[in-house]
Nucleic acid binder design. Structure first.
Length: 780
DNA sequence: TGCCCGGGTGTTTTT
DNA sequence: CACCCGGGCA
């Protein structure tokens, strides 16, 4: 069995351990993917039916690549039958099979974030709430974390603690909004991203026969990036694995970077509690990077308290020291990086694809982009506004969605009057209102306007009926027409193509080309499906498209420098990596500075960034940077100081002091800042201690199936954390203003603002994270 | 009904 | 700075 020879001892042991629960802690670059693929190949070689293997990956692209690699060992006809994909896509597929059990149509729509927020916006408006207080973004985040923690709208409404904290944050109606949102999604036959996990849990809870079937179907489970699973995902895995317990999870606690979307590092730390007889494998040899990079990364991550002990090492050459670049402005930073890429490329005779530029926030891509463009260096930006989020694409997709699932409210709103067909806002409002009164989907209302007493005149009725007929015509050919033929005809006859074709502005031309590209995409899909002999339907295409990730963008053979956020770079590797914007308040992000666990996550993020590099890592910063319009002064990130100096090469201009940067209010820097920060943390109202204490009892110890009720913890929403320390009506003491009373709280933590009345100095609005408030015992 | 302008608001990170 | 929204006007 030759493939086993390609593994080192611990890798081989992990691959050969087939039965029972196991956990693989895989350091960065330690051949994790290799272990996963060979483990699956090994299973199949040992007679396991590919249909009974479920492998959950972090991106669909990773799944595709793994399948291809497995196919080289066991053949494509076997490999193609493995269930492999992201949590979201695998369970979307399962939910499609089981939709009727949950009262959903098989063709349910998947709402993306835009759809969800737009729906929330209209609900907030309809309920007569102020969208300055009930900000769709905030409300969405809140609902999302409720779902990730499996709290239903009902439970949310009934939970006293939630109510108290929502009232304290000035949003007592949040529960009702959540309730209405869930109801509207259901009536629209739509699930949002979180629903795909949430509803899977509901399915497994309410339909034991279904759970039973999948438990027995999937005899072997593999989960990649286990450190980034949230509670809903954790519970799905736990339930599916409950019968056979052939579960192998792979991850690295040092690379957990998704807690903001509910990922819980405790899942990896508590694996041994859930599966006491588990076997642990540690992959510690790094095959990716130079010794310098490995050691530098180790020196950084060692500053974190929460971690599993491991010793990542490499036998690779020592390599070049980490290079530092310091620019005066963000634009100059871009030029320096581009220049450096150009020089390395020339000196080492490299392709552009050897380089990646990684940043903390998407906004940083602009200065990099400009510099690269000026130097004629080809590049590609991953992330940001993705192709599928462009207006023209969403418009056409909305037609597809509506044809597949006419109840889709967001799709209907998008296209009912685009291109303009004389159905105005007033009519749309009436339709929505009537739908709400009749407890129906808007589509059902316009299907039978008279029966539903929709108050419209004859002309409007005629236009509506024309629209209905138009959609229905295509709906009926869904089952008999190939995806591409249908898509093209829709684009044509809806008039979208014509509308954009006549627009000769550069933007208009670009939009038209984008539509062509989308149609080409459908064509590829259709042809693939024909080759495979599987269903070639437009609704299948939609299901695929809804869950594509930026990382799934086809990596054609073109040569370009990759630009992306560090989050998006997870799992990737490049010979030369530039990590830019290493400045306090940017990286680490300003929002992470007030508690230890958030800061540790930023450090892990930096660790991930460093360990993407194979040959050399370069770190850059700018002394000044434009941030939302105005110039700000920047100080070097504390993370730079945390790298062992033996591995860093400082440029001559490094220590040059800027005379006028002395005080930014709270801008400390360097190791000193770290210490003083550490020393002060216990006085912080948002102290991490509060957060951790709150989260301990919240973890359902055994994750017992029936138990969907989870006490919301600080992890559910950042707002709890602030409510913990400071609440409405509380007596507090401020270092400068003295004693006062909290009269108003607004905004979500960590940006919670408190209005406090100080008898001595009047009303002050303070940001909780900066105001070191001391809570006084209730004097009443 | 549609376009233009001004003001307000907001930035981590993503399926 | 960039986007979105609402109001005012044609």
């Amino acid at each position: 069995m030759s493939y086993l020879d390609e593994l080192n001892d611990s890798q081989r042991q992990a691959v050969q351990h087939i039965h029972g629960p196991s956990m693989v802690i895989a350091g960065a670059g330690s051949g994790k993917t290799r272990v996963l693929t060979y483990r699956i190949a090994h299973l199949i070689k040992n007679g396991v039916d590919p249909f009974s293997i479920l492998s959950l990956t972090f991106t669909n692209k990773a799944a595709k690549e793994m399948k291809e690699r497995i196919a080289t060992v066991v053949g494509y006809s076997e490999a193609r039958n493995i269930w492999m994909g992201t949590f979201h896509s695998v369970f979307a597929r399962i939910l499609r099979f089981e939709a009727d059990k949950l009262g959903y149509p098989k063709n349910f729509t998947i709402y993306d974030t835009q759809d969800s927020k737009s729906l929330l916006k209209s609900i907030i408006k309809e309920m007569g709430l102020d969208d300055k207080i009930y900000k769709p973004n905030v409300v969405f985040g809140r609902i999302s974390s409720a779902k990730n923690n499996l709290i239903s709208p009902r439970e949310y409404l009934d939970n006293k603690d939630v109510k108290i904290s929502d009232e304290a944050s000035g949003k007592p109606k949040l529960g009702e909004v959540y309730f209405a949102y869930a109801d509207r999604c259901f009536k629209a036959g739509a699930m949002d991203f979180d629903d795909l996990l949430y509803k899977t849990n509901v399915l497994f809870r309410d339909h034991p026969e279904s759970l039973h079937a999948y438990q027995h179907k999937f005899k072997y489970l593999l989960v990649d990036e286990y450190q980034d699973t949230n509670y809903a995902q954790y519970l799905i895995v736990r339930k599916l694995a409950a019968v056979n317990e052939n579960l192998c999870v792979v991850g690295d606690d040092a690379q957990s970077i998704y807690s903001f979307r509910g990922a819980n590092i405790q899942n990896i730390l508590n694996f041994k509690k859930d599966y006491p007889d588990y076997v642990l494998f540690k992959l510690e040899q790094n095959y990716r990077s130079t010794q310098t990079i490995v050691e530098a990364a180790n020196s950084v991550i060692s500053k974190n308290k929460d971690q599993i002990q491991k010793n990542v090492w490499t036998s690779n050459p020592e390599g070049e020291p980490i290079k530092l670049l310091r620019a005066n402005t963000d634009n100059e930073e871009g030029r320096m990086v581009a220049q450096s890429i150009f020089e390395s490329k020339m000196q080492e005779q490299l392709k552009e694809s050897a380089f990646a530029i990684l940043y903390r926030t998407n906004a940083q891509s602009r200065s990099m982009e400009e510099a690269l463009r000026k130097m004629n260096i080809p590049y590609k930006i991953f992330g940001g506004l993705s192709f599928y989020q462009r207006k023209e694409i969403k418009d056409l997709l909305a037609y597809f969605r509506l044809i597949c699932n006419p109840k889709d409210e967001e799709a209907l709103k998008r296209v009912i009057n685009y291109p303009a067909r004389g159905i105005g806002q007033t009519t749309i409002d009436k339709i929505i209102l009537t739908a709400r009164e009749k407890q129906k989907a808007p589509w059902e209302v316009i299907l039978e306007p008279a029966e539903n007493a929709l108050p419209i005149n004859k002309g409007t009725a005629a236009k509506l009926s024309e629209f209905v007929t138009f959609i229905q015509r295509f709906h009926h050919s869904l089952a008999i027409t190939s995806a591409y033929d249908l898509a093209f005809e829709v684009a044509q006859s809806a008039g979208i193509l014509k509308e954009l074709y006549t627009d000769k502005t550069p933007e208009g031309v670009a939009r038209y080309e984008n539509l062509q590209e989308l149609l080409n995409g459908v064509k590829d899909f259709s042809e693939q499906r024909k080759d495979l002999g599987t269903d070639d339907r437009l609704d299948d295409f939609l299901m695929d498209v809804a869950l594509l990730t930026d990382a799934d963008q086809v990596g054609d053979e073109e040569d370009f420098v990759s630009l992306m956020t560090i989050h998006a770079a997870k799992g990737l590797e490049f010979p030369y990596v530039y990590i830019v914007g290493l400045e306090e308040n940017l990286f680490p992000s300003q929002l992470s500075l007030s508690n230890r666990s958030d800061l540790e996550e930023e450090r892990r993020l930096f660790y991930v960034a460093l360990t993407r590099a194979e040959k050399q890592a370069t770190i850059s910063m700018a002394n000044t940077r434009y941030r939302w319009g105005n110039l700000t002064y920047c100080e070097p990130s504390r993370f730079i100081d945390e790298i062992d100096k033996n591995y860093v090469k400082f440029p001559p201009n490094w220590d040059r002091q800027l005379s006028d940067v002395s005080d930014l209010g709270f801008g400390n820097t360097g190791a000193g800042a770290w210490k003083s920060f550490g020393g002060k943390e216990s006085k912080e109202p948002n102290s991490y201690k509060t957060k951790e204490q709150a989260s301990v009892p919240s973890r359902t110890p055994a994750g017992i199936p029936k138990n969907l009720k989870r006490i919301p913890s600080s992890a559910d929403s950042s707002e709890y954390a602030s409510a913990d320390g400071v609440a409405l009506g509380m007596d507090v003491e401020h270092a400068r203003f003295g004693k006062g009373k909290v009269v108003k709280l607004e905004g979500a933590s960590p940006d919670t603002k408190a209005t406090i009345f100080f008898p001595g100095s009047g009303k002050k609005v303070l940001l909780l994270k900066f105001a070191k408030l001391k809570v006084l015992p209730d004097t009443a």
